[in-house]
Amino acid sequence: MFAAAILAVLVTMGLALIRAFRGPTVYDRILAVNMFGTKTVLFIAVYGFLSGRPDFLDIALVYALINFISTVAVLKFFEYGGPGRAATTPDEGEGD
């Protein structure tokens, strides 16, 4: 049953990735990457239970904080003078 939950989380991550690749605006991509990060937190937590090692939760906790900070930092960059003014922008290399 943990496997079912983990599968659902993985499917969601895949859907978020599709949105991140499709764009079209840079904000869509940041939104998708932020969602991907939240799902990563859930993935780590559930995987810890699946493999019987709840110690993974510490990593999930730290990842939740890092994900938030990175999203806000990237947004700060784009809010003031980054590309992204137009409806379509060239690809920004963002990863997570």
Binding site: Y27, N34, T38, L61, V72, F78, E79, R85
Partner: peptide
């Protein structure tokens, strides 16, 4: 307790990130 902390963090950071995204998009002319 750790799981509860993760819920707490996510419920604090989620809306802030969403608000920052919406504001940045408006600011960016979307």
């Amino acid at each position: 307790v750790k799981l509860a902390f993760i819920i707490l963090f996510l419920s604090f950071t989620g809306p802030v990130a969403a608000h920052a995204l919406a504001r940045a998009a408006l600011h960016g002319g979307l």
